[in-house]
């Protein structure tokens, strides 16, 4: 660490301790609460400092986050999956030892234990190949179960949902042109919407058709398809960015209100 680094580090330490004592001694707050708010603010700023460049404070926050979360998920996995779901189903006494409510014994649950041990066999010098069996089981069942699920939700039901009429509330050309309106509930807007849905879906399907070169009219339809996709992505981009801005506002509110008390 160079001299500037040491000075900055000392400054950060002084700021941290000052904030801790100030937050801990104001009103009803305890020193523990003061420490936690200061730590939260420090970690928020440390992560945000990545926007400038990689630095020791970001590294500290990153490693702390990774370490704590990895330990948290491991603990959660053990207590919710193994203790919460598995043990009460294979042994009453073991379940009682872990203070779990009595579950219905089902010896099929020995199978995941067996597969779990097989997975761990990759740590053994000669039994590594055994760990492929549970992986094959997981991948095979995933593929099989998802085939039916996706075929229903992403294919068949989407097809019938696209059966839209290209004309809505049709009572002849005279009536249609005599009552033209841009009302959101009017027939003109509904018809334009249905045309966009129909054309967009067909052109989108053509874009994702891989067995034919995208040239000629097929290429034109494919390009329309990708344009429809891009317009959709643009709308989605704006919508999601708005959500992210609200997250940023939430963090800034914490810094300015809860920590610095500059706003009410």
């Amino acid at each position: 660490m160079n001299r500037i680094g040491i000075i900055v580090f000392a400054g950060v330490c002084v700021l941290f301790v000052t904030s801790w004592f100030l937050k801990g001694s104001v009103g009803d707050a305890t020193m523990t609460e003061g420490f936690l708010i200061t730590l939260s603010a420090f970690l928020t700023l440390a992560i945000m400092s990545f926007l400038y460049k990689d630095n020791p404070y970001y590294k500290f926050a990153e490693h702390l986050f990774v370490g704590v979360s990895a330990a948290f998920w491991m603990t959660m996995g053990f207590w919710s999956t193994i203790v919460g779901n598995l043990i009460p189903r294979i042994s009453d006494s073991l379940g009682a030892w872990f203070l779990q409510p009595k579950g219905e014994i089902n010896y099929f649950f020995l199978l995941p234990i067996f597969f779990g041990f097989l997975l761990l066999m990759r740590l053994a010098p000669k039994g590594g190949w055994l760990s492929r069996w549970p992986l094959a089981f997981i991948i095979g069942t995933t593929a099989g179960l998802n085939f039916v699920r996706y075929l229903r939700s992403d294919f068949i039901n989407q097809i019938s949902a696209t059966f839209v009429p290209l004309v809505v509330d049709w009572q002849g050309f005279g009536h249609f042109f005599g009552n033209l309106s841009l009302s959101a509930t009017g027939p003109l807007v509904a018809m334009v919407g249905n045309f966009v849905i129909f054309g967009g879906v067909i052109c989108g399907l053509i874009y994702f058709f891989f067995s034919k070169e995208h040239t000629g009219w097929f290429g034109t339809a494919s390009r329309i398809g990708i344009w429809v996709l891009m317009v959709t992505f643009g709308a989605s981009f704006g919508y999601t960015v708005m959500g992210r801005i609200s997250l940023l506002v939430g963090r800034l509110t914490f810094l300015l209100r809860d920590w610095l008390e500059l706003m009410t």
């Binding site: 294919f155 019938s160 696209t162 059966f163 290209l166 049709w170 067909i202």
Partner: peptide
């Protein structure tokens, strides 16, 4: 599968339109 989907959608949309007309 995509050909089936496109054919079904075209048929469904045409039938819906004929019913409206």
């Amino acid at each position: 599968g995509k050909i089936i989907a496109a054919a079904a959608i075209i048929a469904g949309v045409l039938l819906e339109t004929v019913i409206q007309l």
